[in-house]
Design a protein around this nucleic acid. Sequence first.
DNA 1: CTTTGTGAACAGATTCACAGCG
DNA 2: CGCTGTGAATCTGTTCACAAAG
Lengths: 212, 212
Amino acid sequence: MNTQSVPPTTVQRLPVYLRVLVQAQAMRMPVINSVQIAEMAGTNAAQVRKDFSYLGEFGTRGIGYDVDLLIAHLSKRLGLTQQRRVAIVGYGRLGSALQSYPGFQDRGMTVVAVFDADPDKIGKTFDGHTIEAISDLEEVARREGVEIAVLAVPATAAQEVADRLVAAGITAIMNFAPVRLSVPDGVVVRQADMAAELQILSFHLNPEGKPA
Amino acid sequence: MNTQSVPPTTVQRLPVYLRVLVQAQAMRMPVINSVQIAEMAGTNAAQVRKDFSYLGEFGTRGIGYDVDLLIAHLSKRLGLTQQRRVAIVGYGRLGSALQSYPGFQDRGMTVVAVFDADPDKIGKTFDGHTIEAISDLEEVARREGVEIAVLAVPATAAQEVADRLVAAGITAIMNFAPVRLSVPDGVVVRQADMAAELQILSFHLNPEGKPA
DNA sequence: CTTTGTGAACAGATTCACAGCG
DNA sequence: CGCTGTGAATCTGTTCACAAAG
């Protein structure tokens, strides 16, 4: 029984559970239990059950979870019952790699618009999308019903473009530029800083952080 | 005064602090205080001071932190006093985007080898690197002194390639494939699942997770 | 008998608030 | 004074352990 909000750490794990359940479905498993989910997801069974308990009661005691049913619940809670409409902003190497990333389409994300500032690219079509000018962002974003923006522009332009995204009514931004974006309340930003990730790995290569 | 180990949450923030300090250095600020760092890093001053306290005492009371000195300390702790030697494994769209990502070189990471399984790519040179066969992974990785691997192969191949990386003596892996890798103790993996990140954003677009 | 769902215990991270030092 | 460094207080997340349910 539950009325509270879902803890952020739990939200972070929901996509992993969904992925695991889709794998189980592909293996023709009709039912799965918390121990099996935990193993496939890289966590423990108590964590799995506690996480699900924030969303409701989906299991059958003595049996486990109906895979199809649980997928339906997680998809609903993640807002993935329809495809989410995504714009890629910045069509450099990273932006173009992301545009054609097969994992997006399969996991509820449809790229509906691609933007760049470079006049040489604007109007050209790549992988089925015509590159739009960033100056047309507001108009195109509204027309295409963009819900999520993937920001893959140079760090120096990121804040300025983020401001335009917000002005265009977009409230969810995944930012690949290594800068902290300032956005109004109600806009959610997730930071993806590849170099920072590698630096974290580098820390662990060290003789566990001996001082000077 | 400090002998304990650094909490994982603190380690995650160290690259952000380092980036902020380099920005401050570029702005010709000789000294910075915890309030300013916090603002630039998107956290609060108490958090900044507590984080640094796990590494030692670098500040001057009444003044703040010497920017150059603090950069030196963080770089040392992150193991970035020399460039880290990185291999890109999987030269598809994402792998090739990462290979030429300018943020790597500037932030302590040098790509020293690039691998792929596709015979059409092996032996060809792109952006100054000749693509090596994944079958030569162990030999090339040892010869080039690879310390960190960026795994950008299809999900189906990820575990198999990860096993080879481990066999080649690599103990730090950044995995872009949406699968949980199983690796022996002592090997650190960081997971970068782009679709999962977008799904987390999707959760927040929802009427904050109302049930069925 | 098996496995869920969950209070209670525990562990870890963040924030407070202030003593200590330049 | 001003700002750091840090114990203590608080808050959040994880794990335990078991009653409840099929």
